[in-house]
């Protein structure tokens, strides 16, 4: 079947099988390998992308369902410079192995688009659909707090680390 959608601002058209999952279309056919696959039960969220602005698990959407949609993947986030959420993850050590990170970042972007000043509790529940096995989430929460502050035009909360030399 032919499917056509906008991915990171470009119109992409391709032939796919009906059963092709959106994540496989992005990864295999468009070579956008930043979107990852960590499970098949719609739990881990590593495959999260924005579909028409909403955080979506691209492993639980058929590519053909995304016909006509506007899809943003982690590769389409930075606009010449890093997105504040990407910057937050870098500044506050919001990632270790990096595998869950693209999906986590996309969820955080969606969260902050809906709520520009989330509490810690709102952040934690807002990213419940994304599993991370490395960070214990502590620094992911700090990263999102950093991004939220900078997106509001405020100074980010102070870093937790002091030099130990």
């Amino acid at each position: 079947m032919q499917v056509s959608m906008t991915v990171n601002g470009r119109t992409r058209t391709a032939d796919v099988e009906a059963r092709t999952l959106l994540v496989h279309y992005l990864r295999e056919q468009l070579n956008l390998t930043g979107t990852h696959v960590g499970c098949e039960t719609s739990y881990c969220g590593a495959c999260t992308v924005l579909v028409d602005g909403k955080a979506t698990k691209s492993c639980t959407v058929l590519a053909v369902q995304a016909e006509g949609a506007d899809v943003t993947t982690v590769e389409g986030l930075a606009n010449g410079e890093l997105h504040p959420v990407q910057e937050g993850f870098w500044e506050r050590h919001g990632l270790q192995c990096g595998f869950c990170t693209p999906g986590m970042i996309m969820s955080a972007v969606a969260l902050l688009n809906e709520n520009d000043n989330p509490s810690e509790d709102e952040i934690r529940h807002g990213i419940e659909g994304n599993l991370c096995r490395c960070t214990g989430y502590h620094n992911i929460v700090r990263s999102i707090e950093y991004a939220a502050a900078t997106m509001r035009g405020e100074d980010p909360p102070a870093s937790q680390w002091k030099d130990e030399s």
Binding site: K54, T56, G129
Partner: peptide, 9 residues
């Protein structure tokens, strides 16, 4: 129900 992404869809 589910999580944020699941509730979106």
């Amino acid at each position: 129900t589910g999580d944020h992404q699941v509730r979106n869809r």
